[in-house]
Computed example of a mutant assay.
Amino acid sequence: MATTVRGERRPFGPIANDVSGPAVTHRQVGGEGVCRWKMLMNGMHLEGEWNCVEYVVVEPGASVGEHVHLRTEEIYYIVRGHAVVTMDGVEIRAAAGDLITTPIGSSHSIANRGDEDMHFFVTEVFPGEGPAAPPAHLHVPDRLEPGAGIRSAEVDLTRYFTGDWRRFRLLDIPAGGRLDERVPTDRSIVLHVLEGSGAIVADGVRHPGGPGLSVALTPGLAFTVSPTGAQPLRLISTEVGVA
């Protein structure tokens, strides 16, 4: 969303949400069975070309039916369980830790053929100009830096999309550790907790929570992330440019 009005930039503040209280959908987009779906962030409340940030739980035997995005580009990050993603007629077997990119115009569906719930995190962003790259399937934990302390794995999303995507990161913060960063002035960020409990502090507000906590952060904002228990904290970060 544009934030410059009559020559004055009007910055947004942080947004916090979690995955509690989802809607129950039946035969979502013409699929099978039951899914639990929640919009975590609406793009109209974020700076940059975000369309939405969502969280979906697909029950055993259920699916999100085949569909085509004509106005947005999309990523899926598998949080828990196993998925079968059919992309342009090709089946992709995906599991927790897998990132799947969907360029504009590609047809895709996602199914749970296992016996446990499958969870995935979704981001959609408006496209730019030029040809899109083919869909990609990446196992992000394989990219984690070795060693002790805070570890990170990074995917450069600019190579996969036409829109103003930037980085996708997986972050592991050990118990007693603390991530201390500032959002670059040319982008906004959505953090999403995968494992452990922790606190995200930004703009003087502390946002505590466990798996499913999501916090959107605005350009130039300083923030910290730290575990609050004896276990490490794992989270993902999605970055989108701000014009």
Rank of each mutant, 00 (worst) to 15 (best):
residue 97 G to Y: 10
residue 159 R to N: 04
residue 89 G to H: 07
residue 54 E to Y: 00
residue 176 G to V: 06
residue 22 P to L: 09
residue 107 S to Y: 04
residue 31 G to M: 06
residue 197 S to W: 00
residue 87 M to K: 09
residue 16 A to Y: 01
residue 142 D to A: 11
residue 207 H to G: 05
residue 243 A to E: 15
residue 123 T to Q: 09
residue 150 I to S: 05
residue 164 D to K: 03
residue 25 T to D: 10
residue 52 C to T: 08
residue 217 L to I: 12
residue 124 E to A: 13
residue 48 G to P: 15
residue 239 E to N: 11
residue 56 V to P: 08
residue 134 P to Q: 06
residue 136 A to W: 01
residue 60 P to K: 08
residue 165 W to N: 02
residue 195 E to Y: 12
residue 42 N to S: 13
residue 225 V to T: 12
residue 125 V to S: 01
residue 224 T to K: 10
residue 5 V to Y: 14
residue 212 G to R: 01
residue 123 T to C: 14
residue 233 L to M: 08
residue 99 L to V: 11
residue 61 G to Q: 00
residue 194 L to E: 02
residue 124 E to L: 10
residue 179 L to E: 11
residue 233 L to S: 06
residue 23 A to G: 12
residue 14 P to Y: 09
residue 103 P to L: 05
residue 103 P to T: 08
residue 3 T to R: 08
residue 89 G to N: 00
residue 12 F to M: 10
residue 116 E to L: 00
residue 55 Y to V: 09
residue 101 T to R: 06
residue 184 P to D: 13
residue 124 E to V: 07
residue 171 L to I: 03
residue 90 V to R: 14
residue 29 V to F: 13
residue 51 N to Y: 12
residue 140 V to A: 07
residue 56 V to Y: 01
residue 154 E to G: 01
residue 5 V to S: 02
residue 79 V to R: 07
residue 211 P to D: 02
residue 70 L to W: 03
residue 195 E to D: 14
residue 40 L to A: 06
residue 57 V to G: 07
residue 10 R to F: 13
residue 74 E to Y: 05
residue 233 L to F: 10
residue 211 P to I: 01
residue 69 H to C: 08
residue 155 V to L: 08
residue 67 H to A: 03
residue 219 P to C: 06
residue 161 F to N: 07
residue 126 F to H: 15
residue 106 S to V: 15
residue 172 D to Y: 07
residue 241 G to P: 08
residue 198 G to I: 07
residue 222 A to T: 12
residue 224 T to S: 15
residue 81 G to P: 09
residue 45 H to G: 03
residue 151 R to N: 04
residue 134 P to A: 12
residue 236 I to C: 11
residue 129 E to W: 10
residue 232 P to K: 02
residue 243 A to T: 13
residue 225 V to Y: 02
residue 92 I to N: 13
residue 205 V to G: 03
residue 78 I to P: 11
residue 236 I to G: 09
residue 212 G to M: 02
residue 225 V to F: 05
residue 13 G to W: 00
residue 5 V to T: 09
residue 73 E to R: 05
